[in-house]
Design a protein around this nucleic acid. Structure first.
Lengths: 164, 164
DNA sequence: CGGAGATAGTTTCCTAGTCAATCAAAGAGG
DNA sequence: CCTCTTTGATTGACTAGGAAACTATCTCCG
């Protein structure tokens, strides 16, 4: 702009204008997403598992034993993270780790009986959490939001399960 | 259910059905949000600041020096987190910490000249990131998504800035 | 005034990830 | 077959943030 300097109000008034954060869709997306996740974490706090632990348990439910690498891909975490996450769940006797029969390097993870039995109650919490936020929308609005989000996910090649 | 047991296919086939993760709007919200954030983090990796650091710098830009507590509220982080975040930015000479003139307990944070000069370039990265994901939508779709998200945010009393 | 409680910020300890190094088992090629 | 490379998992060093304890200061009120 012009070299004319305005007469120094507290923060020098002639800063280059910068777009407002709230102008970004990403801002609102993250705001809402964070709140939904946080509310779910609060519900899980009453249980013996964390959000990431629930996510891993859900991934194993009603499926054959799976290698950690597969789960890492599904959950969008590194293998190292899965190793430690699995360690915690094993310590709680909710899952078991076993050597793969066909590949000497590989391991498999599977829910224990206790872990399996716990999943439905946790899933109910997840259902309730989702309802708590999105039942406020009309069915049309829900459908519209779902369509938009799925479209973005598809276009952006977003595959991994976010840690829910 | 009935005591009849199905004849043991790999994972016993008679588990209580549990709602699919992808049935939840929260799932898709988080999936997209995580991807957008991650893409932005990748862009910032080429700079000298992290996402949280950018967020703090943006909060200070074009405003009078602010107390850390205010920033903690704005960013949705604890005060302890802001102390450490500020320490890192001070080490990079991007912000300064000063004692508040009127309250002996309080501190204020403000951008340095260098920090101020850096903000517009970072803001441009943020703009570009948002555009990258959401320009794929039509103007109508963008407006619709924005309206839905703002409505959810308002209804859920979501105030704090998510760490962008 | 002076002490009780509230408030601002920092610090400490803990949790949960990433990244890079490591090790063992598989697979490929001469 | 023997080496080279790749792959699966684990480990260790490091980072970022939360919760709660702690310190200093302020405010209120008897």
């Amino acid at each position: 702009m012009s070299p004319v300097q305005s007469p120094a109000l507290p923060p020098a008034t002639s800063l280059p204008p910068v777009s407002d954060l709230t102008a970004h869709l990403g801002f609102w997306l993250r705001l809402v997403s964070n709140h939904v996740s946080h509310a779910f974490a609060a519900k899980l706090a009453a249980t013996e598992v964390t959000v990431a632990e629930w996510s891993l348990m859900r991934a194993l439910y009603d499926k054959a034993p799976m290698p950690p690498s597969r789960i890492a891909d599904d959950m969008g975490l590194t293998r190292g993270a899965i190793t430690k996450l699995a360690d915690r769940l094993i310590a709680k006797a909710l899952i078991v780790r076993a050597a793969s029969p066909d590949d000497g390097r590989a391991q498999t993870l599977a829910l224990t009986e206790r872990g399996t039995a716990l999943v439905p109650a946790l899933a109910a919490l997840a259902d309730r959490n989702d309802a708590e936020f999105f039942d406020a929308l009309t069915p049309d609005e829900r459908a519209s939001l779902l369509r938009l989000l799925k479209g973005l996910a598809e276009r952006g090649q977003m595959t991994a399960t976010p840690i829910e």
